[in-house]
Design a protein around this nucleic acid. Structure first.
Lengths: 150, 150
DNA sequence: ATTGTTTGTCAACTTATTTGACAAAGGTGT
DNA sequence: ACACCTTTGTCAAATAAGTTGACAAACAAT
């Protein structure tokens, strides 16, 4: 399904890499909270971390999003507990969306005048007709429906 | 355009956060290279890093992808110089794709039985008909074309 | 044969992270 | 009012991670 072994992998990773584990300071800076807050939120069970061999917390990108979401609600005046509750639904959606995109961003290739990604089938559309993203060298980018390649 | 102030932001960030800056060890682990390699590749001008206030290298997610791409070609037997050259094209595509997705993933909302994202117009399709991603509570996820909401 | 490329490793120093503790501001309940 | 719980800041002592510079080794290029 993927064109050039190593390239399609990179394509998929634009969503976010499974193998990426973030340090606490980098997460804190990215979402503008303190490391104290991240540790406390974890202690209370609102977020999770993996512990590295050397004993340091490592966060997935998903957890960064989750924590950033919590921080957003806290800034709107919610308590930590209710902020965390509100993010539970968003977390489910994010997981679903991420999984969906990972399966669909799997087939990219060069075309005349640009680059194209085959995103597969569209509901209620002939299965031969696939959704594509075209990134053209003239600067245009768009979704397009056309017959799948083979 | 975005529905709930802080949620649509989270949606957009599933692609990857601009404000995320990664430590050298986390990048090295994610793409399975040594920190020595990352520092050397930077010295030779193949990748870039920002220096934090305290003097530490910080990498964007884009740079992680770039370095991972280089590592992939090196594992296929290319020299560093030719690996870096081969990634230049991929880097352009990644940037274009990222930008495109950032503009399109801007409008998500709850619907009957699930969650929907309006991805906007499709080339050569009536502008009233928008592409959507539907993530249904029954487990189904799909692209769909339907009239835009308003 | 000599030079340049690429990575490993070591040393000395600075910055980050860890846990545990004390403190303080604010809310909750009696 | 009083006693709690929540939430975050800050400090201290210890360990881990990051910095530069140097030496070395494997290998490719000229």
């Amino acid at each position: 399904m993927n064109s050039s072994s190593n390239h399609a992998n990179t394509l998929k990773k634009i969503i976010d890499s499974d193998s990426l584990l973030l340090s606490i300071g980098d997460v804190a800076n990215a979402i503008d909270v303190s490391t104290r807050q991240l540790r406390y939120w974890e202690k209370k069970g609102y977020i999770k971390s993996k512990i590295s061999k050397s004993g340091q917390r490592k966060y997935t990108y998903f957890t960064l999003l989750q924590a950033g979401d919590i921080a957003g609600y806290i800034n709107e005046g919610y308590t930590l507990a209710s902020a965390a509750e509100k993010t539970a639904n968003n977390a489910r959606i994010m997981k679903r969306l991420r999984q969906f995109l990972q399966t669909r961003f799997d087939n990219g290739y060069e075309i005349e005048g640009g680059y194209e990604i085959d995103l597969g089938e569209i509901k209620d559309v002939d299965a031969e007709q696939h959704l594509h993203i075209d990134l053209m060298e003239d600067g245009e980018s768009f979704f397009q429906i056309k017959k799948k390649d083979k």
